Structures are given as structure tokens and as C-alpha cells.
Measured scan of single mutants.
Amino acid sequence: MGFKLLSKLLVYLTASIMAIASPLAFSVDSSGEYPTVSEIPVGEVRLYQIADGVWSHIATQSFDGAVYPSNGLIVRDGDELLLIDTAWGAKNTAALLAEIEKQIGLPVTRAVSTHFHDDRVGGVDVLRAAGVATYASPSTRRLAEVEGNEIPTHSLEGLSSSGDAVRFGPVELFYPGAAHSTDNLIVYVPSASVLYGGCAIYELSRTSAGNVADADLAEWPTSIERIQQHYPEAQFVIPGHGLPGGLDLLKHTTNVVKAHTNRSVVE
């Protein structure tokens, strides 16, 4: 069995187990497998329904001669939608809004960016022009300005110390501490036991640490421990890039980060 097929099978099995364990909360999309990078042309966006009122959005972007996937989250909030992270750029984010209108038909009224990198804030200006209120932590807003990236308009308070959590509509926002970046936030959907790890969490097929220019490698494993301790009931975990899975993604990420750190020390 090929690795790609095995990865998709694991996603399907995880979703099936969740649907059985929580039949009222989960209505997993039966329309197909989780979209992969090879299936999404740059400039297009796919939506994948995880649970009743919960979707991931998947886009792709060219970077350094390669094409990478990027995940975000959409959560229903009454007759409105909360968006977590842009679709990595203005063109993708405009396509995301169009796809949401086509498939869901509810307005996106608020959006949260989970850290300051372009795959999370690139497209904020498109959201703002569409009347979406954009939010991020003060740290993310400051770092985005320093980096020359787009800056969300509103500040999220109460997320300055490791372990801080605040309720934001249908989700809980959690600051686990520094990891992929010093400002990275985690998003949890309690009604569906869905954990969105953003770039602080890796997919299972990833074996290298990737972009760690703004990471705190020493603190990252401790931050992941905080996530595990705060959300032990999480059933569906979405990484910032690639295929979702279960809580095993947290341990896998820790292993990859520690291996990278150990290699760096040896070198």
C-alpha cells in the first residue's frame, strides 16, 4: 500500500471513529477524501466538511520552486461564519470567499490569524475590503508590521502568557507558548472536538522541520505538551499544512522538532 493511500485511509478511519463516538456532533463529509496538494491548482481553494458547521479550507501556493498546501478553518456561528487564517495570499483568499459563498452561503463576518507569517495573514486586506472584521493577538499584529505583512485590524486580548485561553464565538483560542513562531495560536472547536494546530503542528508525513527561522526550538516541545494537557479530548487535529489526523500529530511534531534540534547540535 502506497504512503499517500495509507495517509488518506488514516484520515478516513479517524473521521469514521469520530462519527461513531459522537453521532450528534459529527456529520463528516462523505463526498470524498481530504484534498491534497496535487489536486488543488494554485489560485483555487477546496472546502472539506469535518463536522456539522465545521470545515477546513485548503489552498496551495508556490514557494521556492515548489507547491505547498495550506489549511485553515471555518466555523459556523449562528447565521454567520468565523474564518481562521487566510488562504495564503490575496488571490487565494478572494477564491476562498467565493467558494464559501458557493458552498455554504453564509457571510464571513470575523477572521482570526493564528500567527504573523504570510500563509496566515496574506489576504487580510481582501477580507477587510469584503467587510470582514480581522483579528490577531497584539504580538501577531506587531510582528506582521515588522515583517511588512498585512496586519489584522483588531487585537485579541488575554493571550499574552503561555497557557492563556479565551473564548471567541464558537471557538476557544489558546496560546501554548512559542513553537513554530513566538505568537502562534491554537484554535479548538469544543462542539466538535476539532483542534486546529496551525503551523505549530505537523502532518504525519512530514519528517523535516522546514521553516524554523522564527521558531523557538527549545520551547516548542513544552508548548505541545500544554496543548495535549489542555485538549486531551480532541479527536480531529488539523495541521497548518497537509493531512489531518488525531492527537498523534502532536507527538510526531515533537519528535521531528527534537530530531532537528539534535542534528543542529551535532553539526
Results as ranks from 00 to 15, higher is better:
Met1Trp: 02
Gly2Asp: 10
Phe3Pro: 06
Phe3Val: 10
Leu6Met: 12
Ser7Cys: 13
Lys8Ser: 09
Lys8His: 06
Lys8Pro: 03
Leu10Tyr: 15
Val11Phe: 09
Val11Cys: 14
Thr14Tyr: 10
Ile20Thr: 10
Ala21Arg: 08
Pro23Ala: 11
Ala25Phe: 15
Asp29Arg: 09
Ser30Pro: 08
Val37Ala: 15
Glu39Leu: 15
Pro41Ala: 13
Gly43Tyr: 07
Val45Gln: 03
Arg46Tyr: 11
Tyr48Ser: 14
Ala51Gly: 09
Val54Trp: 03
Val54Met: 04
Ala59Phe: 04
Gln61Asp: 05
Phe63Thr: 08
Ala66Asp: 15
Val67Phe: 15
Tyr68Asn: 08
Pro69Asn: 15
Gly72Ala: 00
Val75Glu: 02
Arg76Trp: 06
Asp77Asn: 08
Gly78Met: 07
Gly78Pro: 04
Glu80Asp: 08
Glu80Cys: 06
Leu81His: 02
Leu82Gln: 00
Ile84Ser: 03
Ala87Gln: 00
Gly89Asp: 03
Ala90Thr: 11
Ala90Phe: 08
Lys91Gln: 15
Ala95Ser: 12
Leu96Pro: 03
Ala98Trp: 13
Glu99Phe: 09
Glu99Gly: 12
Ile100Met: 06
Glu101Trp: 08
Gln103His: 15
Gly105Trp: 05
Gly105Ile: 03
Gly105Asn: 09
Ala111Tyr: 07
Ala111Val: 07
Ala111Trp: 04
Ala111Ser: 13
Val112Ala: 06
Ser113Met: 05
His115Asp: 01
His115Glu: 00
His115Arg: 03
His117Leu: 01
Asp118Thr: 07
Asp119Leu: 00
Arg120Asn: 00
Val121Asn: 03
Asp125Asn: 10
Arg128Asn: 11
Ala130Met: 14
Gly131Asp: 09
Gly131Val: 05
Val132Leu: 04
Ala133His: 12
Ala136Gln: 03
Arg142Pro: 04
Arg142Val: 13
Val146Thr: 13
Glu150Ser: 01
Ile151Phe: 07
Thr153Arg: 11
Glu157Thr: 12
Glu157Met: 13
Ser160Asp: 12
Ser162Asp: 11
Val166Asn: 06
Pro170Met: 08
Val171Asn: 02
Leu173Gln: 02
Phe174Glu: 00
Tyr175Gly: 00
Pro176Cys: 00
Ala178Ile: 07
His180Ala: 00
Val187Ile: 11
Val189Ser: 03
Val189Arg: 00
Pro190Glu: 13
Ser193Arg: 13
Ser193Ile: 06
Val194Ile: 08
Val194Cys: 00
Tyr196Lys: 00
Tyr196Glu: 02
Gly198Ser: 06
Ala200Arg: 02
Ile201Lys: 01
Tyr202Glu: 05
Ser208Ile: 10
Ala209Trp: 06
Ala209Glu: 07
Ala215Leu: 05
Ala215Met: 05
Glu219Tyr: 07
Pro221Asp: 07
Pro221Gln: 08
Arg226Ser: 07
Gln228Arg: 11
His230Ile: 11
Pro232His: 13
Glu233Thr: 11
Phe236Gln: 09
Val237Lys: 02
Gly242Asp: 05
Pro244Arg: 04
Asp248Met: 10
Asp248His: 12
Lys251Arg: 11
Lys251Pro: 15
Lys251Asn: 10
His252Met: 01
Val256Glu: 03
Val256Phe: 05
Lys258Gln: 14
Thr261Met: 12
Asn262Gly: 13
Asn262Tyr: 10
Asn262Thr: 11
Arg263Lys: 13
Ser264Arg: 10
Val265Glu: 14
Val265Asn: 13
Val266Asn: 09
